[in-house]
């Protein structure tokens, strides 16, 4: 096994578009959970409506930029849908509604047939041609050896990390402002904030929607990178992965989500590559690189 290749692949994954998308996902969640104390267990649904908003619009013949706008509007609407009925109640209600609402929405998207708006289980593909058409990087390999990206991957990665930078700056500005001060007071004691004249409900709703829109961009990046949306990408486990990334990097910290995403992808790919290599080198006794089913049938 070549450890250099394993490390290179892991680095590649963590600085690539997916690393950036996970960072954005966690930045949105950080605003919800880290700074406001909202328990959003349906975060992955924001990625889903962002991705589908774009894909469906383009698939129906709309321009790509309109697709992005539709994705953003869809995330705002989803935030209102989750927040309006629950944010006046105890925190648990948001948790229940988000986890259930996200799954219901996913099931609805999934249930259409091939010719429906969402493409059902077939999803939608090839909707980001405009995006790749705008690629300023000429065809070729960028980077060194295993660490090289194609011009397409590089273009997505550059856009994605730019969005991460923008979102990080926006969040720093927001949480350092008096608005952020109110958010921190809500996280600690809602009643104290209320007693001082703060409209806690409105702040929570603003936080939920803003973080949701940031996550919608993450959904768009993942969809664009693959040129495909599929309902099974947005299983509830995705939300918990986002929590893992956020907690790994540190909640309520400025660079936590970015750090968490990079470290997560590095560890994930490294472990994967290392174990594969170890198995094929015979370092792990009893393990076979072949699938267990075929091993049993022998």
């Amino acid at each position: 096994m070549d450890i250099v290749i394993v490390v290179a692949d892991a680095v590649r994954a963590s600085v690539g578009p997916l690393g950036a998308a996970y960072a954005l996902t966690a930045i949105g969640l950080n605003l919800h959970y880290g700074y406001t104390g909202l328990l959003n267990f349906g975060h992955v649904a924001f990625l889903m409506v962002g991705a589908y908003g774009t894909a469906v619009t383009v698939d129906q013949g709309g321009p790509f930029w309109l697709g992005i706008l539709v994705g953003v509007i869809a995330a705002i609407l989803l935030g209102l849908l989750f927040g309006l009925p629950t944010l006046r109640l105890r925190v648990d209600y948001l948790a229940i509604v988000t986890i259930a609402g996200g799954e219901v929405l996913r099931t609805v998207i999934r249930s259409g047939d091939k010719d429906s708006l969402t493409g059902g289980v077939f999803g939608i593909t090839q909707f980001a041609t405009t995006f790749f058409g705008a690629n300023p990087f000429p065809e070729g390999e960028y980077g060194w050896g295993r660490l090289a990206f194609t011009e397409r991957q590089l273009w997505v990665a550059v856009v994605a990390w730019s969005l991460v930078a923008l979102a990080t700056i926006l969040l720093v500005l927001l949480v350092r402002s008096p608005w952020g001060r109110v958010l921190r007071s809500i996280r600690e004691d809602e009643d104290a904030a209320r007693s001082l004249g703060k409209n806690v409900f409105a702040y929570k709703l603003q936080s939920l929607v803003t973080g949701g829109v940031i996550a919608a961009f993450a959904g768009m990046i993942i969809a664009i990178e693959r040129q495909s949306v599929h309902p099974d990408t947005y299983l509830p486990a995705g939300t918990f992965l986002a929590y893992a990334v956020l907690i790994l990097g540190g909640t309520a910290s400025r660079l936590g989500p970015v750090l968490g995403a990079v470290v997560y992808w590095f560890l994930f790919e490294f472990t994967d590559g290392f174990l594969r290599g170890a198995i094929s080198a015979g370092w792990i006794p009893g393990a076979s690189s072949r699938r267990p089913t075929s091993a049993r049938s022998e």
């Binding site: 926006l170 500005l173 927001l174 402002s177 008096p178 608005w179 952020g180 001060r181 109110v182 921190r184 007071s185 904030a193 001082l196 004249g197 703060k198 603003q206 803003t210």
Partner: peptide, 21 residues
């Protein structure tokens, strides 16, 4: 921060102005 939080009519508490120091 406890004190400053309590001040009424703060422009910076509105999300549209918050990022504009």
């Amino acid at each position: 921060d406890n004190m400053m939080l309590a001040a009424p009519h703060q422009r910076g508490e509105r999300i549209v102005y918050a990022p504009l120091r």
